[in-house]
Design a protein around this nucleic acid. Structure first.
Lengths: 240, 240
DNA sequence: CGTGTACTTGAGTGGGCTCAAGCAGGGTGG
DNA sequence: CCACCCTGCTTGAGCCCACTCAAGTACACG
């Protein structure tokens, strides 16, 4: 279960100057001059599906700016059960929860192939210490996460909403950008998120497929994405 | 539902110098001298059960340090349903979520009689701006809240855990300090938190009462508290 | 080609929901 | 003081959605 996989580096040193995400990321307050002065060892890495970017209980050694793909944050509760508490997509930053505690609160597992900039914790902390604006932005980011958790809580996990509606809501949250492509999680993962069994998710999904609310991508069904009828799914998601 | 009640001030200006919570609260980094220099208009207020300290969508005008009692943060989702996303007790600070957005994310409703120090937002922001340490503490507080939400999510709301176990877990979260007294929420509130109907909560609670896992306080059953057999409830809470 | 993992599909069961009736306590007004 | 209402709680009977258990399929990988 989530066996640690060798961490794989592919693209080598990233080019922050050319990065089209830089303005939207946490680091937007850091000037180009700062970056140059720092000689920051930020790597641009690729993690295959199933890889752990970090694991619960380990020392927190980096934060990750996700440039492509989707990952899950998994919490281990007291009884050893696994529980997916958050989903991170492009433009999200993983590992912020551990900046001060120093120990990872969650395991971070790649669901699709994930491309991420890895910023060593020591450098990230230096950035924070030297840029008051960055600290404030970090605070706002954390509060934004809190708001998303509120919505997650009330829309997804709510047991007295039919599974069918909650699956639709989850699918809409897994959209790639604003298009009709939807990150495809395993039935087990979706079940863990929603608090239902994989069987139930399977029945709902295959019903959606039958009614063309969901479609496979490519001739051989891609295991990585669905194509979704966003309007139809939105309608179903509002039935709660 | 949650009709706005006149806000009631009882004790007048609070004495921050004598406040025994000051070291443990968010404001612990603010020195006595700072407080004097500020002539801070912090009021020590008392809110009867059911009172709204603040309401969703209103401009955020203050943060509240809770000195006594228990309150709930209620979120209104898209379909107008109400959903309790957090419970705040003594030493917690309400309203931090709105410091930057400027608009209340939740309604904050007193469940028992709540005593709270009301710090006007303008002053709170000035504090933050002038004390780098305070901003960092605020960040840590917000991340702590995030961790508690993770636990809330995986332990309380999880639908495939029996209602009986989840009620026990909720009761343990509602303990007053470390004793055996437990803040008593309405059946409807507990149902809203757990995602079950009030009838189900009623059946579980009356079963707990029959087995002496829960007891009434005083000869005439207090509507505000239970007394709980913490060991027994803990045992039940681990059955998940 | 065999094995493992993920998914599908079916039949039967049960926990919690729904609907409903009844009760208790606390206000309010006569 | 009682009559009244209103809200919250209790308790019961029946039902249904999702769970459980199980068997079978599809596909990836060694």
């Amino acid at each position: 279960m989530h066996t640690p996989v060798e961490r794989v580096s592919c693209k080598g040193r990233s080019n922050c100057f050319a990065c089209n995400l830089r303005q939207t990321m946490v680091c937007a307050d850091v000037s180009l001059e700062d970056l140059v002065a720092f000689h920051v060892p930020i790597d641009d890495l690729v993690y295959p599906p199933g890889t752990a970017l970090f694991e619960t209980g380990e020392r927190a050694e980096a934060v990750f700016c996700i440039r492509h793909g989707v990952m899950k944050l998994v919490r281990q509760d007291a009884t050893g059960n696994q529980w997916i508490v958050r989903v991170l997509k492009k433009n999200d930053v993983a590992g912020l929860e551990s900046v001060f505690s120093g120990v990872n609160e969650h395991s971070g597992i790649a669901v699709s192939e994930v491309h991420a900039c890895r910023i060593p914790m020591a450098h990230f902390k230096l950035f924070i210490a030297q840029h008051a604006g960055l600290q404030r932005r970090l605070l706002e980011t954390t509060q934004q996460t809190l708001r998303e958790m509120d919505a997650w809580l009330s829309e997804l996990v709510n047991a007295n909403t039919p599974a069918r509606v909650r699956v639709a809501r989850l699918l809409l949250r897994l959209r790639v950008g604003d298009g009709d492509r939807i990150h495809r999680f395993s039935l087990k993962d979706m079940g863990t998120i929603l608090g239902v069994t994989p069987e139930t998710v399977s029945r709902v999904i295959s019903d959606f497929l039958k009614q063309d609310f969901l479609m496979h991508v490519g001739k051989v069904a891609s295991r990585r994405h669905f194509r979704g009828d966003i309007a139809a799914l939105t309608r179903i998601s509002q039935e709660g």
